[in-house]
Design a binder for these strands. Structure first.
Length: 247
DNA sequence: AAATGGTTCAACCGCGGAATA
DNA sequence: ATATTCCGCGGTTGAACCATT
């Protein structure tokens, strides 16, 4: 049996024309963001439903950011990539206005190269070559903390040559919520620091990852804030590379 | 000014899983 | 229960653009 796509007339490919964009926008608005093959047919566009979906999601959809990814977003991408790997759509959900395709491109063209130039494996986020002993390590998950403790043990049990390779460079950046310096509130550096969790500070107030109580400015329940800020089940900590101590 | 090489990113492809007939 | 269609994802490609020689 011939597939649906095989029955289609010759389909256009390549860059979209303004008129095509206009028509697609009109029909998606009318028919909703489903049934892309139907939209493709109804609109009279000589494009596949798949192509229409892609164009809409990555270019025409409202509220897309068109400016370049900034350093804050880059930090988030790095952080989430370490946690989830190449799960671009999942990462994109944490960056409003950004598409998975955009993040994937940015990763491959900017971050990946940046990490490689620093001797970091972009897949594992671990050092490819001997790390500088003076490098500060920050932001690591609970499991990563355990990993580090395991590694610390391994290092102690290893020969000097092995130690060089077991020492691990982690250039993850520490992500913190903006300090809410409410009028007359914080007088010291740490006061009021935890009134918004990272999830809420990104605008995801009802997220399951919210740790402050749906944006109600609750203080994090954690009894030990000195260990860092919890985000997505991770703790932000600082690990001294020389002593391998969590601070 | 032209040639060359590198970079960027929009778009396509193939696959797997979910939904539907 | 099975076949087919639809959808979404991650990987890859290639044209356009930019920088350098």
């Amino acid at each position: 049996m011939a597939t649906h796509s095989a029955l289609q007339a010759v389909q256009r490919r390549g860059p979209w024309l303004q008129e095509e964009d206009r028509r697609l926008t009109m029909f998606v608005t009318r028919m909703g963001e489903r049934k892309w093959d139907s939209i493709a047919k109804a609109s009279g566009l000589e494009r596949s439903g798949k192509s229409c979906r892609f164009r809409w999601l990555n270019y025409l959809r409202p509220n897309l950011k068109r400016d370049r990814i900034n350093s804050k977003e880059e930090e988030i991408i790095m952080k989430l990539h370490k946690k989830w790997g190449n799960k671009w759509s999942r990462i994109a959900r944490w960056l409003p206005g950004r598409t998975d395709n955009e993040i994937k491109n940015y990763w491959n063209t900017h971050i990946k190269r940046k990490l490689l130039s620093r001797g970091i494996d972009p897949t594992t986020h671990r050092a490819i070559i001997d790390p500088s002993p003076a490098t500060t390590i920050s932001f690591t998950s609970n499991s990563a903390v355990e990993d580090q403790e395991d590694r610390k043990k391994q290092v102690n049990d290893s020969s000097p040559t092995e130690k060089r390779h077991l020492l691990d460079l982690n250039l993850d950046l520490k992500i913190s919520p903006p300090y809410p310096v409410a009028a007359g509130a914080a007088t010291t550096k740490n006061e009021g620091r935890n009134s918004l969790c990272f999830s809420c500070s990104l605008g995801f107030e009802n997220s399951k990852d919210c740790s402050c109580g749906n944006g109600k400015n609750n203080i994090i329940a954690s009894s030990d804030n000195s260990k860092g800020f919890d985000f997505l089940g991770l703790k932000s900590c600082v690990l001294d590379c020389r002593t391998l101590e969590i601070k």
